[in-house]
Simulated assay, not measured.
Amino acid sequence: MRAVFNAPEDPMRVAIRDGAPEPDPAPDEAIIEVHAFSLNRGELALLATRPAAWRPGQDVAGTVIRAAANGTGPAVGSRVVGLVEQAGWAERVAVAADRLAEIPSGVETIAAATLGIAGRTALNTVRLGGALLGRRVLVIGAAGGLGRFQVQLAAQGGAEVVAVSRRAGAVADLGELGADAVVSRTEDAPGLFDLVLDGVGGRATEAAVQKVAPSGTVVLIGASEREPARVALTDFFGHENAALRTYFSYAEQAPVNGDLSFLLGLLREGRLRADIGFTGPWETLPQALDALAEGRVDGKAVLTLQ
């Protein structure tokens, strides 16, 4: 079958090649014929650090062509979205049944493909704020796929949401998604916030600490800003007992299939919008990676297999 391979020696950085081995599923894994996959910023770092011939890809959507042998999970013919650790950018992939969810009618496959990393991370980082009704949430890096989901989910939880984005063209979109205000710098966000979701890192984290309310929470999610943050105990004067914590999607304990099913239900009901800022056939993967690295994708990048 054809699959994407890491190719650090190639100017395009990745290559779609024939001859990849067919997936050999465990008893609890189904084989999915992949119709679409989405890209995540974390995969840029993985491609830069993994060896040649490593196979990337985490978010996939497609059709079950072989159900799990142990009888669990979706049946053959089901449209599904799934989450794997690697090797998802291929014509076929084995996915554990408890990491799959059926796509309901009315939800497009390319929209479902956005949910694995970005949607699930947004869901579980917003949950870290607890009950949000009447509380204030700051989303840093709000124009990307993750940030757009965070804005929507926090707003649905009843929070007042302020979005931070340097992309002038995203202001109207973020307002439509539920942001009460959009600012270009974290420092310009008015007041203090019970929950600060930092999808950028570096200097943004320093600014985030200055915007968290006493006993509030700052969640570190992204690291696109390469200059490390410098934070000291004295920076928390006026923000006493605030928590500074990390979130790594691979360590999340919530059931993957449950999270994906919940998010798919929101898509079906029109309560969640999957904004896709780059789409095309998977042969355009190098261009999609460049656009993502350069911050030119408003929302998610999703590629399709013909």
Score class of each variant (00 low, 15 high):
E91I: 00
T49H: 09
V84G: 05
A189L: 12
R120E: 03
A232G: 10
D290I: 11
A143F: 09
A172S: 06
G265R: 15
V126A: 02
A26C: 03
E9G: 15
V34L: 00
A168S: 11
P11T: 05
G42W: 03
F37V: 02
S215P: 00
A163I: 08
E227I: 13
V162N: 02
E108Q: 12
R66G: 00
Y250F: 14
G88N: 07
P23C: 10
S105M: 04
L272A: 03
K211D: 03
A223R: 11
Q86C: 05
A142R: 06
L266G: 09
F236H: 12
A274N: 14
A274G: 09
T125P: 07
A232P: 00
V107M: 04
S78I: 02
E225Y: 07
V196R: 11
T284R: 15
A67E: 06
G201Y: 14
P8D: 03
V183E: 10
I110D: 07
L233Q: 07
A90E: 02
A122E: 12
R2I: 04
V4T: 13
R66D: 02
V171W: 12
V76C: 03
G202D: 13
F193R: 10
Q306Y: 00
R167S: 11
V95M: 08
S261W: 01
R167Y: 01
A87D: 13
V93N: 00
V164Q: 05
G130E: 07
I31P: 00
G141L: 11
R120W: 01
E206M: 14
A30L: 09
L44I: 14
W89D: 07
N70V: 08
V161P: 04
A232M: 14
A69D: 12
A229Q: 12
R148Y: 00
I103H: 07
N257W: 12
T304S: 12
L47V: 04
G62A: 05
R148S: 15
R127F: 09
P11M: 07
G71P: 01
G169K: 03
I221N: 02
R92L: 07
R271C: 02
F278H: 13
R50H: 07
L195G: 01
L138P: 11
E225Q: 12
L177R: 08
R50T: 10
Q287I: 04
P74T: 09
R120P: 08
H239V: 05
T217W: 04
G62D: 06
P104R: 01
E294P: 06
A20Y: 02
M12F: 01
G157R: 04
I16K: 07
N124L: 15
A163Q: 06
P23I: 10
A142E: 06
N70Y: 09
K300P: 05
A254L: 11
G270D: 01
W89A: 04
R230P: 00
T63V: 15
D18F: 06
P190I: 14
E85V: 01
A168V: 14
L133A: 15
D188N: 13
A101T: 08
W282M: 13
L305W: 14
A94C: 05
V60K: 05
T121P: 09
G106M: 04
L153F: 02
G202Y: 09
I103K: 08
L263M: 06
L174V: 07
W54E: 04
T63E: 08
I110W: 00
V218I: 14
A90F: 03
L46R: 06
